[in-house]
């Protein structure tokens, strides 16, 4: 009876997590992250990203499915219970196959800039470049004055909800996509 309850609990938790949280591909990860003060209240976050797609997403892309990637960076402050986000910045990029000229089209959702890349590798490299640059404007002065009190965090993920619904279900049920959304953290000091 106890085992049955735990299985039921696990299934419910899994379904809830699937619904509530975006899913990231297994090979999408942040290799390195740094930050740079551009001026007193502008912080530029640079992320070195590994943008290798799993087979299911490559197939989906080649068959007309648009993929959306999102990078998010934020300044955190440790609190008694967990961490508080002081400021955050998000960049989202779409990648799709443009059949008319057989190029891969990369569109920055933030500024609608489009780039055509002849190969998937070029396209992913461009995506990594676009997502790896996150300027944070209007950073509070306290962050600059006492950087030791703050931490930086960033993450990269595939926007699961942007996938076609059947693919969400299929990939989710087959376990090709995981629900990992780990944060990469480093010190602001």
């Amino acid at each position: 009876m106890r085992a049955g309850r735990s299985v039921i609990g696990f299934l419910m938790a899994w379904l809830l997590v699937l619904a509530l949280f975006p899913v990231t591909a297994q090979a999408l990860e942040i290799r390195d992250a740094r930050h740079l003060w551009m001026d007193d209240d502008t912080l530029l976050v640079r992320l070195l990203l590994d943008m290798r797609l799993p087979q299911v997403l490559e197939e989906a892309l080649a068959n007309g499915v648009t993929l959306e990637f999102e990078a998010e960076a934020r300044i955190e402050q440790d609190r008694w219970l967990g961490r508080e986000s002081v400021q955050s910045e998000t960049r989202r990029v779409k990648l799709q196959y443009f059949a008319l000229n057989r190029y891969f089209l990369v569109t920055d959702v933030n500024d609608d800039r489009m780039e055509l890349k002849p190969t998937l590798g070029d396209a992913l490299e461009h995506v990594a470049r676009r997502l790896g640059r996150l300027p944070m404007h209007g950073v509070p002065g306290a962050v600059r004055e006492r950087p030791e009190d703050y931490n930086m965090a960033a993450r990269l993920l595939l926007v699961y909800s942007a996938l076609p619904l059947p693919l969400q279900l299929d990939a989710g049920l087959r376990g090709d996509l995981t629900t990992r959304r780990e944060w990469h953290r480093w010190s602001l000091d």
Binding site: G64, Y97, L167
Partner: peptide
């Protein structure tokens, strides 16, 4: 553009045929 959109949509639809059936069955 319409031809491209239709082609892309059809390819996507064809590609997702299996998942669609599985989704319906599920």
């Amino acid at each position: 553009q319409r031809v491209e959109d239709a082609f892309a949509g059809y390819r996507e639809f064809a590609y997702l045929r299996g998942p669609i059936i599985q989704g319906f069955i599920f």
